[in-house]
Design a protein around this nucleic acid. Structure first.
Lengths: 205, 205
DNA sequence: GTAAGAAACGGAGGCGCCTCCGTTTTAGTG
DNA sequence: CACTAAAACGGAGGCGCCTCCGTTTCTTAC
């Protein structure tokens, strides 16, 4: 049960430390993940693995060598998307005023959730089976959000009496909203509304 | 969300009220459930449905007509087994002194849990998806146990300062015990131990 | 009985899963 | 370069899933 979270990947022999892949292997692996991301978003996690292999231009054997089970592949795709989402936060912060960056990031968050709605069952299984994954990922997301919010507060473009967890909480409504046709539009409106609320009462109004 | 638990099956048009099956259909359905119970216990819930159909002497199409998905079949089997377990309580109560009836029933409970250990993942999914099923079934079990315990207490063959929930709680250890080879023996010993504790301090000691 | 319609049957067919292993590609080494 | 071992590839094959629809069996009414 004891676990030493400080040690680095190199020191842990069992995970993530594996030697660099051969060039062709790396190439194929990347393509598989890329194709899988699209396929899962389009057809849900039950998308045909054979089809994914075909579209990536590799044999089904190759897919299974890289990802022994469907869940492995789903997990990798999920991690990659969360990382993309967090990276976008930094990127937006560089190229926009803080409040705009925050708003755009939240819109991206909506898009991200949108692709995950079909996957809910399977993701839930994955996340209950592998709770490390969950805390890992939600930690990253809230960290990214925190930076955006704090920058916007510091800059005076949104009100000072809120923090990241308030905003995340407000975004929570997106999850629970019914799965209707207009879910996406509704969510976008919610983000706009939220931003108006955040901007109102800012120092510089 | 509102739900009216008092209404009978006949009054609810959508469920369980369906007209009696044709004789051959009923026969086949029963055989399928019976075979499936054995197959699931032996090979887990991933047992081949084609094999089940074959062993029941029907075509795969027949199986799918009766049970549109694997989960349907698993649910029916599960319900049937819980009902069998509860019925056994009444039966044992008729043919044995109360304390013996209780002990034997607990041993049967161990057997029942034993068959469910392989199914845990799939059952968990089923039970989280369909929480009615869960409360339904655990309600029945604790009711059956309550009758046994109360009879034994009334009769003076076990001590009077316990109730059904105490006993159920004590049995809880069975679940969490590690899944070793000797799990069953260990659990049987646990039941014997528990019974000794219950008999000790009874009026008639 | 028997005739007719309804209900149920069953298995072929098409697809996806995953394993296994003969073939090909890569990355070192002289 | 040329050679070789190791790594990676890929797809055939065997199995299970599930649907679809032509065939069989049951039930009801005469």
């Amino acid at each position: 049960m004891a676990y030493e979270p400080q040690e680095t990947a190199e020191q842990r022999p069992e995970a993530a430390a594996q030697k660099p892949l051969r060039a062709d292997a790396q190439r194929n692996r990347d393509r598989l993940v890329e194709v899988a991301a699209v396929a899962f978003a389009q057809n849900g996690v039950d998308a045909s693995l054979e089809e994914i292999a075909r579209q990536a231009g590799v044999g089904i054997g190759t897919l299974y060598r890289h990802f022994p089970t469907r869940e492995h592949l789903v997990e990798i795709v999920y991690r990659r998307e969360v990382e993309g989402l967090c990276a976008a936060a930094d990127d937006l912060a560089l190229h926009h005023p803080p409040d705009v960056a925050l708003e755009q990031w939240m819109q991206r968050f909506v898009d991200y959730i949108a692709t995950k709605r079909g996957l809910s069952t399977s993701l839930r299984i994955l996340l209950t089976t592998n709770s490390t994954l969950f805390s890992d990922m939600s930690g990253r997301v809230s960290l990214a959000l925190r930076r955006l919010v704090e920058a916007a507060v510091a800059d005076g473009s949104i009100r000072g009496d809120v923090d990241a967890s308030d905003v995340l909480h407000a975004l929570g409504g997106i999850y629970s909203a019914p799965d209707t046709k207009d879910w996406r539009d509704r969510s976008r409106r919610l983000v706009k509304l939220l931003m108006d609320g955040l901007r109102f009462g800012a120092k510089g109004r």
